[in-house]
């Protein structure tokens, strides 16, 4: 799998709720801070992502978009 959680790091406030609800543990707090000083979330393991979108569902800041790899493309 090569699904994608696209992170709008300027909106991320590093609250960690997405990491908390991810069933596959594909997200982590990264090493780079955004302009407001938040160390934003990153995908640490794209291959494990099942595109369940739990992370985006619970993200309070609209920082995440989720895309599923389409078969045969």
């Amino acid at each position: 799998m090569n699904n994608l959680v696209k992170i709008n790091s300027e909106r991320c406030k590093s609250c960690g709720l997405c990491i908390h609800v991810c069933p596959k543990d594909v997200l982590t707090i990264g090493e780079i801070a955004n302009s407001k000083g938040y160390y934003t979330v990153e995908m640490k393991d794209q291959t494990m992502c099942i595109a369940c979108a739990f992370c985006a569902l619970i993200c309070p800041d609209l920082a995440l978009e989720v895309y599923r790899e389409e078969k045969g493309k």
């Binding site: 938040y38 569902l57 309070p60 800041d61 995440l64 978009e65 989720v66 895309y67 599923r68 790899e69």
Partner: peptide, 24 residues
Amino acid sequence: MKPIFTKTKGLTDRPFHYCPGCTH
């Protein structure tokens, strides 16, 4: 890639002012 979850048009692009983790 097929979008599973993207930002709604029902909201503006303005970032929320709420504290980190606030469920508003």
